[in-house]
Write a protein that binds this DNA or RNA. Structure first.
Lengths: 158, 158
DNA sequence: TCAAATTCATTCGTATGCAAATGATATCAG
DNA sequence: CTGATATCATTTGCATACGAATGAATTTGA
C-alpha cells in the first residue's frame, strides 16, 4: 500500500513529514494545554454534581484550614495555590456564610488570621467523604494502575 | 526499625491504617482535582510568557477557525469546549481586535457565522510556532516517554 | 399543518484567576 | 537610627467559566 497520486519525490517528502511527526499540522485537540483545560472542566463539573453549595477553591480553603489550623490569609493562599486577590474573595464568601472567621494578628498588624468556625469544621468533616468520591469518579476512566501513573506524572507537571 | 512509643496493640492499629492507604487522612495536595488545577495554572502562566497579547481560549478560537474555516459561534464553542456564554465573550474580544469577523447565516437566521480576518489568519500563522514551544515547555518536566503516557491518560480523563 | 420541542444566541449573576497599583506595616542594611 | 526593601492585604480592571432565564428561529411529530 502506498499513497495515491504521488511520485517518488513526493514519497520522500512524505517520509520526512512522517519522521517529523506531521509537524506541519497543528492539532489543537492534541495540545497538552487544551486537554488539561478540558480535564479540569470535567473535574469541576463532577465536583459540582457531588458538592453543589461549595466550589473547589472554597473546599480547598476549608480542607487546608482543617489540616493546619489557623493561618494568615496570604499563607493559606500559598498553600492552596491562589494569589492574594483570589484568596481574598474566597475567604470573604466563606466568612459571609459563617464557615470561617478572621482576626488580626496581635504582633504583626499586617496579617489577617483565618480559622474555621465550628460550622466550618462540621462542614468539612461532612464533605471529605464526598471529596473522596469526587476523586474516584474523576479518575474512573483509568485503571488503578493508570491512575497511579497519571497522578505521578501530573504531580511532576504541576 | 519500628515505630517509637507504640505498644503491640498500637502496632496492629498502625498496620490496619497502612493497609487502608492511610484513608483516615485527607491530603488536599494529593487529590487529582487540586493537582489538575495547579497544572492548568502552570500551563496558562507558560502560555502568557510566550504569547502575552492573547489568552489560551482566544488562541484556541483562532486555531480552530484556521483549521476548519468559517463556522457558527455555537459550533465553534463546542469544538473548543466553551459554553455559549463564554464563547460569546471570547469572540467579542477577538472581533474588537479585528482578528475575526461575524456575519449572519443566510438560511438559518439564528446562527452567527464567525471567520478569521486576514489579520487573524496572519496572527495565527505567526503564533502556531510559539504554541509548539509552549507545549514543549509545559511538558518539559517529563521525559518523552512519560509525556506520551501522560497525554494518553490525560486524554482518557478529559 | 401546527403546537411542542429544540437549537442558537444573548444577558445576567456569581465565582475564580491574575496583573498592577496602593497603603500599611515590618525588616534589613549601613 | 533611618532610609531602602520587602511583605501583607486590598482594590481595580480584565478575562474566563457556567447556570439560569429569555427571545428568536427552526425542526419535529402527531
Amino acid at each position: 500500500m502506498g499513497w495515491p497520486e504521488m511520485s517518488g519525490e513526493d514519497n520522500l517528502l512524505r517520509l520526512v513529514e512522517v519522521e517529523d511527526g506531521d509537524e506541519n499540522n497543528y492539532h489543537l485537540q492534541d495540545q497538552v494545554g487544551f486537554i488539561l483545560r478540558k480535564a479540569h472542566q470535567r473535574h469541576v463539573s463532577i465536583f459540582a454534581s457531588h458538592i453543589g453549595d461549595l466550589t473547589p477553591p472554597q473546599f480547598a480553603a476549608l480542607a487546608k484550614l482543617y489540616d493546619i489550623g489557623e493561618t494568615s490569609q496570604n499563607q493559606l493562599g500559598t498553600l492552596i495555590a491562589m494569589d492574594a486577590a483570589t484568596v481574598k474573595g474566597v475567604i470573604d464568601r466563606l466568612k459571609a456564610r459563617g464557615l470561617v472567621e478572621v482576626s488580626k494578628h496581635e504582633v504583626d498588624k499586617r496579617r489577617l488570621l483565618v480559622n474555621l468556625t465550628p460550622e466550618g469544621r462540621e462542614a468539612i468533616e461532612r464533605l471529605i467523604p464526598l471529596a473522596r468520591a469526587i476523586t474516584e469518579e474523576t479518575l474512573a476512566p483509568l485503571t488503578a494502575k493508570e491512575a497511579a501513573t497519571f497522578l505521578r506524572l501530573l504531580a511532576k507537571l504541576a
